[in-house]
């Protein structure tokens, strides 16, 4: 496997360092060839940067891609926004030689060049494609059989499809496949692919952001999800932090939010505390308790064969 740099992004490192922790633990446990490299800046974030200055967006993204291009590495990120933004810039420049020329003329003055040879992947499709369900099954110590998990892809894991090209942008399967590889039931529900709505918090529309959080969380309650599993710090902010804020106002929805790397970490045998899950604002205890309870339940069809073939009154 080609070595890759991890692009942590601003949100994980600023607000959720425990997500970096679980990601590192999981990458290490799978012996994946990852590295930290110097020089990354903000990806840049689309709604804050591209909406204000398109050239600054393109130039900043191209510079970040140039860093991995030059180092001969691929790039993997546990943040959907970062990958989506970087891939959007990359595919835009690859399709527009004139713009690429302009960007490279500027990059040259700081000694860099965008070539766009590095593969840019989000952690979830990366695990699906480069590690694979088979290897995951071999490696894990405990699975999630009996658990109902709701996978939330997060828009930017798969969209825009032309830039990411990693799954069906309107009917993705890979995150679901990973849930199944971990032994869980991957729930299907109407708002599965709907945007989390966190973007509204970034434009001073907090009530609208809460509206979107509530919509999905209520539905998950109704379909009996044991947890919402996601792999995007912005979606995590929306469902963990905003759910906590609603709880404080007396609206308790009680849906534990689990990061993909935490789920994988638990399956690998790490405990919730060392994975940093105690730093969540919405309590994950109900999820962990259910997991304990289902693992004590008899396996499907346990004992029936022995009972049918045992000696008895019929001789």
């Amino acid at each position: 496997m080609k070595e890759f740099a991890v692009f942590w992004g601003c949100t994980i490192q600023t607000r959720f360092p425990f997500l970096e922790k679980s990601t590192r633990m999981v990458l290490k446990e799978f012996n994946l060839p990852f590295r930290d490299i110097d020089g990354f800046t903000c990806c840049p974030e689309k709604s804050l940067v591209n909406n204000v200055d398109h050239a600054a967006f393109t130039l900043t993204g191209a510079r970040n891609v140039a860093l991995v291009d030059e180092a001969g590495l691929d790039l993997v990120s546990p943040c959907t926004g970062c990958v989506s933004n970087l891939a959007t810039v990359k595919s835009g420049l690859k399709a527009d030689p004139r713009e690429k020329g302009e960007v490279n003329a500027l990059l040259k003055e700081v000694g860099r060049e965008f070539t766009g040879i590095a593969n840019l992947s989000h952690l979830v499709p990366f695990f699906h494609d480069a590690v694979g369900a088979h290897k995951i099954r071999q490696k894990i110590k405990r699975n999630f059989a009996g658990m109902k998990l709701a996978a939330h892809y997060g828009c930017h894991m798969i969209r825009p499809g032309y830039a990411l090209r990693n799954d069906d942008p309107l009917d993705p399967k890979k995150f679901d496949n990973l849930m199944t590889a971990l032994g869980a039931e991957s729930l299907q529900f109407p708002t599965k692919l709907m945007c989390c709505g966190q973007g509204l918090d970034r434009v001073d529309q907090h009530d609208n952001a809460l509206y979107f959080a509530r919509l999905k969380l209520k539905e998950l309650k109704a379909v009996g999800a044991d947890a919402l599993v996601l792999c995007c710090p912005s979606c995590f902010l929306q469902f963990d932090n905003n759910q906590f804020l609603m709880e404080k106002e007396g609206e308790k929805l009680g849906v534990p939010i689990i990061y993909f790397t935490e789920l994988m970490g638990l399956a690998l045998g790490f405990n919730a505390e060392e994975l940093g899950m105690t730093a969540h604002r919405v309590d994950v205890t109900s999820f962990l308790q259910k997991w304990e309870a289902v693992s004590k339940m008899p396996l499907n069809g346990a004992g029936i064969d022995e009972a049918m073939n045992s000696a008895g009154a019929l001789g």
């Binding site: 689309k46 969209r159 434009v203």
Partner: peptide, 13 residues
């Protein structure tokens, strides 16, 4: 104009 969530769903459709 700030209520577009930039989910890119429209682009895919």
């Amino acid at each position: 104009i700030w209520q577009c969530l930039e989910c890119h769903y429209c682009l895919e459709m």
